[in-house]
């Protein structure tokens, strides 16, 4: 026994021995579950992924009450345009395709109802009346003028959390204006069949402009309900 001890004292590399012990403990700890599996039954369900869209923050967590910022405008005797941006660094438009739409998809923005308007306690204004370049009432059944234009062509499309994903084969939508019964839905993105089957993407800086009719009363409570839809096609 003394002989062995003497040999260890003379020969054993203490650093190597410490490292080996550390490795052994680490492997033993990480392998605990595997060793236990010989006598236990494990069940694991991987839920199928689904195509989805949302507004997320920089960490890809859904934003509870997303907002679309539009520049404030003052009362005017002439028709004016308010501009805004949809999709920012902290409120990114987000599409996730976890192998759910292998042959492509499209992302579009539409009003909850084509007969909707920018609603307020006072006088409303329209979002889809092309009459007079969006400045006057006429084309649809309501009595309000106003038209919204959405342009995704200048927006920034990027791969999301998926580091190996690319934006190739995804086309950004051109500028288009809502027009009741003619253009009720505006395309933001169209993904071809060749786009990544598994991936996620963010879109920032979709330009939005709204024509506001002349003499529209000042109010701070104008609101409209829009729906962002992603569709497997």
């Amino acid at each position: 026994m003394d002989k062995i001890m003497f040999k260890l004292v003379r020969r054993l590399n203490l650093a190597k021995a410490t490292a080996a012990a550390f490795m052994a403990i680490t492997l033993a700890l990480s392998g605990t579950y595997v060793l236990a599996s010989s006598t236990s039954q494990f069940t694991q369900t991987i839920n199928p992924g689904t195509l989805s869209t949302d507004i997320v923050d920089g960490s890809y967590a859904p934003v509870g009450s997303p907002s679309v910022s539009m520049d404030a405008v003052g009362f005017s005797f002439s028709c004016q345009t308010s501009t805004g941006s949809f999709g920012t660094a902290t409120q990114q438009i987000y599409v996730k395709n976890p192998d759910a739409a292998d042959s492509g998809w499209s992302l579009a923005l539409a009003a909850q109802n084509a007969t909707d308007v920018w609603d307020s306690a006072g006088t409303d204004f329209d979002f889809n009346d092309p009459t007079g370049s969006g400045c006057t009432d006429g084309a649809d059944a309501d009595n309000f003028g106003g038209q919204m234009t959405v342009d995704a062509s200048g927006a920034t499309l990027a791969a999301g959390a998926c580091s190996s994903c690319a934006t190739t084969n995804i086309s950004k939508g051109a500028s288009a204006s809502f027009s009741q019964a003619v253009t009720d839905s505006i395309t933001l993105l169209t993904a071809a069949a060749g786009s990544d089957d598994i991936g996620d993407w963010t879109l920032q800086g979709v330009s939005i402009s709204q024509k506001i009719p002349a003499e529209q009363p000042a109010a701070s409570d104008y609101d409209i309900n829009l729906v962002l839809s992603v569709t497997a096609s």
């Binding site: 989805s52 507004i55 679309v68 539009m70 609101d223 729906v227 992603v230």
Partner: peptide, 12 residues
């Protein structure tokens, strides 16, 4: 009612 654009999301 929240002023501005109220968004909802759906998958088709």
């Amino acid at each position: 009612e929240q002023a501005g654009v109220n968004l909802s999301f759906r998958t088709g």
